[in-house]
Design a binder for these strands. Sequence first.
DNA 1: TCGATAACTGAATCGGCAA
DNA 2: TTTGCCGATTCAGTTATCG
Lengths: 361, 361
Amino acid sequence: MAAHKNIERNTVLQGDSIELMRSLPDCSVDLVFADPPYNLQLKGDLRRPNNSLVDAVDDAWDQFSSFRAYDDFSRAWLTEAHRVLKPDGGLWVIGSYHNIYRVGAVLQDVGFWILNDIVWRKTNPMPNFRGRRFTNAHETLLWCSKGPEARYSFNYDALKVANDDLQMRSDWVIPICSGGERLKGEDGHKAHPTQKPEALLHRILIATSAPGDLVLDPFFGSGTTGAVARRLGRDYLGLERESRYIDAARERIARVTPLAPEDRQIVTPRRQEPRVPFGAVVEAGLLSPGQMVFDARRRFMAKIRADGSLIAADVKGSIHKVGAELQGAPSCNGWTFWHFDVEGRSVPIDVLRQKLRAELN
Amino acid sequence: MAAHKNIERNTVLQGDSIELMRSLPDCSVDLVFADPPYNLQLKGDLRRPNNSLVDAVDDAWDQFSSFRAYDDFSRAWLTEAHRVLKPDGGLWVIGSYHNIYRVGAVLQDVGFWILNDIVWRKTNPMPNFRGRRFTNAHETLLWCSKGPEARYSFNYDALKVANDDLQMRSDWVIPICSGGERLKGEDGHKAHPTQKPEALLHRILIATSAPGDLVLDPFFGSGTTGAVARRLGRDYLGLERESRYIDAARERIARVTPLAPEDRQIVTPRRQEPRVPFGAVVEAGLLSPGQMVFDARRRFMAKIRADGSLIAADVKGSIHKVGAELQGAPSCNGWTFWHFDVEGRSVPIDVLRQKLRAELN
DNA sequence: TCGATAACTGAATCGGCAA
DNA sequence: TTTGCCGATTCAGTTATCG
């Protein structure tokens, strides 16, 4: 067996993912997040009805000669991921219908055990311009443990609180990565063709890792995993072949401010409420972990945490629960109770739900 | 090759799905809908495509042998489905994370071409009682053509209209089958463990079949496919092993009232409207040779000639070709690009085509 | 400076028919 | 089998431009 290096944390290694993984020791990472090439098989150009050209993913790294070749590639990196993962660790893989059925079958063959498949429902997908199919409005994530009997970590209560005390479902509604979050090169063009939204990684890391955990991303790309890991106090190790992506990722991660430990804490049990969850408001960046909220008359204050829970003195939980307990009331509608500051004016957080609701539906 | 029977329509055949499919002729069905089992008792059930028995019984019952056995089963029925399907036919398969990645990989291996994966998002899924995973709130459907170059039928316009004039997306929000729709046995218990909602089949049949089409369901179960096919004026052929399910399904389908042909009509696909050449508009005197047409913003002008061609400076040809060349675009729909004056207002020439179409019926 | 409007963009397996 | 032509086809945004 090859000599395995100790892992240096919070770095990006340049090279072939599979070879680099072979240099890592057994059972050394807590979580793997992988966004492998999708093997899109695009033929000609595609134009919008207004004749503009769609900027397709036609990079060499996404080209495979056959399903067989793609399966071999998948088996190679998934085998290494399995070896490198701690016994109680977790694996996440994201893909589309082009590749996820290949990847899913191979990861089962390699020994991983699927815990859930998660659907990322995009609020703003690209339309089907020719009207030949359904709008391809989602991507799929597979969440796995190391084997059928393996233990795994899942912060059930944190997610439930972030989801307004309802169990988090297997379908997640999150916009695609665009606007200010999207990394641009010096030419103003997108720095990476398939940058993932930070909200997606935020939910994944909150759900299935703890502060101090080591997260391996073998297809690091623009470094979304690293950026969110750093913000949430997780360590990361990125593997990436293209130096231009590595440069962009390093710069991006350096700009991230890690949250204070108390702001990334998660809660202990409890429960109830309706649609657009407060956690989504936090994930969307409309409010930030660490930011304060208060009631209309400023008698009570609470601090927002990374999982979408609130904390005030000895009370912690959902926006509803914390509001109720502070008032000594049996219940409370946190959406209308809690406010935040916009240029000195106090505004109920419900406006953010309405804003998000408009986006999500 | 075995002698293949002619297909009797709107019946349920009792027996092993794979064997029964082998008795059907090549290229004889328009659509396959399959809800394959995945809780198989791997005891002598499974046969390879060559009809040999899978030895899952004797092997140590491990993950690998069970996946292999399930793959063999999937390959066998998907191979037959592919053979039996017409060249322009479609395939739908529904499954959950337990089996859909096996099925998806095998159907690609067998030659099917994935057109979309569809997420059936359940509004009322069963909660995760132990709180160890995300609420499993969806199932996955795969929609395929017979191959990468194959044609397929898709009623784009009907779906768009049904969706408030927005393209139908790949995520469908549909409640699970319960209440009055759920078949009950004499004991009051559900008659079938995985009865699918009729709303799901309704959308599938409207989207990818036409009245009179033959729909094959090799795992007929409670007969949802048959019931919806009958209501929508499609023919069905069900295959099912268990006689108790067949009895329930036949009774159920007999109670269905087929829609009147005019009620199952869908919007006329715009692509299928009768073709009207621009020359016919000129011949009908709706526009005159010598008259000028121009684009909406009056950046380009052209003159109509007697043969129904346009001329602008050094460019001449069809309404489409001249529009494309003037814009420097690869193509152009001349009907919507070119306008003419009616009482000072600028109107696309497409209104004249529609007028002519109405006269021609 | 501001509001209205135009232009641009996103992991996309995106024609059919006749000659 | 290949070529050429007809003509059908987009949603939710963000950024840039114009008045």
